[in-house]
């Protein structure tokens, strides 16, 4: 094969490499530029709407807090803003990470079997089930969360049923508890978990599962050594897409919780819009970003994404 190709090339240009035509050089240059051209629109967008505002926000977070909107702020590189923010609101930061983490785990536990069933067991119902997963998005976030407020309320059906269960106290309630906030987060972010999981499970080759069975793997073992590792990209993507927005969310805590369940988002909300303490709001935003970044990086390392193709 190679010999034949070589002989053909040799026949075309006896002695020495073939001369490279001018158009070929131009074509090669264009090909080298292509990746950059593809990066350009997205890069510009990020620069304009992420990098520039972030730098501005970083500046704001270091303003002297004794200023105000009316009197103006002076840049004093007040790193103490960060210490003040942590000192005053560390419980909220912890709650954000904690609630979002728990909600993400629950989403994974609920979403994985759901995505697997849609991808491999649903047959002709597949499309319909996928639409059902996405359907809640047709209502706005706020209205959906308000609906959960009435579902979980003290006179609502869930609490009513639970109170009828023996050993559940009669004053048992869901609304205004951490559980309610986590429920809301799970409900609102479940599709972000299911869709990437579905995408990676759908690509899973059923013949690999049969091969595992043929090689003495019981169904559970097959899941552990074949299905799960091959769906890791979906697990990682789904987890990040759920955890990151959930950690920054404040609507669920606002509507389903009390100030005792407030997350850092609620504090930022009030610092920006109620107390007008811009430097502190900016500092908290950065602290939230840093928390998320640290958690995500350590998670991605633990999940070992480079192991996964």
């Amino acid at each position: 094969m190679t010999a034949a190709v070589g002989a053909a090339a040799g026949a075309a240009t006896p002695g020495g490499p073939p001369p490279v035509p001018v158009e070929a050089v131009a074509g090669r240059r264009r090909r080298r530029l292509t990746p950059y051209l593809l990066l350009l629109p997205g890069g510009l967008w990020l620069l304009l709407f992420f990098v520039v505002p972030s730098v501005q926000l970083a500046g704001t977070s270091l303003y002297d807090r004794s200023g105000s909107l009316e009197t103006g702020y002076s840049q004093t590189f007040a790193f103490v803003n960060y210490l003040d923010a942590i000192g005053a609101y560390w419980p909220h930061l912890l709650r954000s990470a904690g609630y979002a983490g728990i909600a993400t785990v629950i989403c994974l536990v609920l979403g994985y079997p759901l995505a697997y069933a849609i991808a491999h067991k649903a047959g002709r119902w597949r499309t319909l089930l996928l639409v059902c997963v996405i359907a809640p998005f047709f209502t706005t976030f706020l209205v959906r969360t308000l609906a959960w407020k009435s579902i979980l309320s003290d006179n609502g059906p869930v609490v009513g049923v639970l109170r009828a269960v023996p050993f559940v106290p009669d004053d048992f309630r869901l609304l205004a508890t951490p559980a309610a906030v986590v429920c809301g987060l799970v409900y609102n972010f479940l599709p972000f978990m299911v869709l990437p999981l579905y995408a990676s499970l759908e690509r899973l080759d059923g013949r690999l599962l049969e091969a595992a069975g043929d090689l003495y793997a019981k169904p559970v073992t097959t899941f552990r050594w074949v299905t799960l590792p091959l769906s890791m990209p979906g697990v990682v993507a789904g987890t990040l897409l759920t955890f990151i927005p959930a950690a920054g969310d404040y609507i669920n805590a606002e509507l389903l919780g009390t100030p005792n369940q407030y997350m850092v988002g609620n504090v930022i909300d009030s610092a920006f819009l109620v107390r007008l303490d811009y430097p502190q709001a900016a500092a908290l935003s950065f602290l939230l970003m840093a928390t998320i970044l640290v958690m995500v990086l350590s998670y991605v390392r633990a999940a070992g994404t480079e192991e996964v193709v």
Binding site: L208, E210, A211, A212, G213, D214, Y216, L230, E307
Partner: peptide, 28 residues
């Protein structure tokens, strides 16, 4: 059940595990 049978298959499509190296495929 397949995993209890003392028979093994060479599949038409090979069905090698893409996430495992050759050694781990054979060791499976």
């Amino acid at each position: 059940r397949p995993y209890r049978r003392p028979v093994n298959t060479v599949f038409q499509s090979y069905a090698l595990f893409p996430h495992l190296d050759i050694g781990e495929n054979i060791a499976f």
